[in-house]
């Protein structure tokens, strides 16, 4: 089989001080596919997501073992610049967190810091990113108004546009719709379907129906271990492991 992985984790262990949050996680993430990470709270799925763009090391006392291979290189190798990793692997969080600036400046903030300048280039980038995030039509006439006046769903799409403006290859999403109403959620889900043509997406979600609806592959985590990884369709119709089955059918505890 042709290797179409954008990212691969190899025997990843992760510790918060003495607490081992992830044990021996080896899993692929395919290019231009949506991979969902599911499992009960504390199972390590968000920890793994944050490891993929080196966010966890911002927390003191943490330690990583194993490798996370992206573009043929271990992103934890000493010569790798975490800032570059975070540019190429973008992240969208649970709660929309726009900067208290205009819509326009929210998008251009990152690109400006990394050297994109010139009015025309920035304007083109803003339009392109907002179109990709399906927000352009709603905000094109109010680009210089504060992002804080947007609805929650619009703010979340703005955060997606902001991540896309950095031209990442992978988009990490940590429960991106858990704070949104069903209509905004549907829009984001629709957007994810669209975005996977150009990006590889990894999403953590507590909503199992959402994982079933939008992902191509699903990994089920339990107490820091990857219990089962397979095509989403397979996981939700005939999972191979009983723990997975118990979880997705609602037999908890």
């Amino acid at each position: 089989m042709q290797n179409n992985n954008v990212i691969e984790t190899k025997n990843v262990n992760f510790y918060y001080g003495d607490f081992k949050a992830l044990t021996d996680v080896t899993m692929p993430f395919q290019r231009n596919r949506v991979t969902a990470l599911i499992g009960p709270s504390g199972c390590g799925k968000s920890t793994l997501l944050r490891l993929i763009n080196r966010m966890n090391e911002l927390i003191a006392g943490t330690r990583v073992e194993g490798e996370i291979i992206f573009d043929g290189k271990n992103i934890y190798a000493p010569e790798i610049d975490p800032v570059e990793v975070r540019r190429r692997i973008g992240m969208v969080f649970q709660k929309p967190n726009p900067f208290p600036k205009s819509i326009f400046n929210n998008i251009t903030y990152g690109p400006r810091l990394s050297g994109t300048n010139g009015k025309a280039a920035l304007e083109a980038l803003v339009e392109h990113s907002l179109r990709q995030a399906s927000l352009w039509d709603e905000v094109k006439d109010i680009l210089h108004q504060s992002a804080m006046m947007l609805s929650g769903g619009q703010q979340q799409r703005l955060c997606i546009a902001r991540a896309l403006a950095m031209k990442p290859e992978v988009l990490l999403m940590d429960e991106p719709t858990s704070a949104l109403d069903p209509i905004s959620t549907a829009k984001i889900e629709e957007l994810i379907e669209e975005l996977k043509k150009e990006y590889s997406i990894i999403i953590v979600t507590h909503n199992m129906q959402q994982a079933a609806r939008i992902s191509d592959f699903t990994g089920f985590f339990y107490i820091g271990k990857l219990i089962e990884y397979n095509l989403t369709e397979k996981i939700f119709t005939t999972p191979a492991v009983k723990q997975t089955e118990d979880y997705i059918t609602g037999r908890f505890g």
Partner: peptide
């Protein structure tokens, strides 16, 4: 209930 896996089957 949106049953899954064995419940769906």
């Amino acid at each position: 209930r949106q049953p899954a896996a064995r419940d769906l089957r």
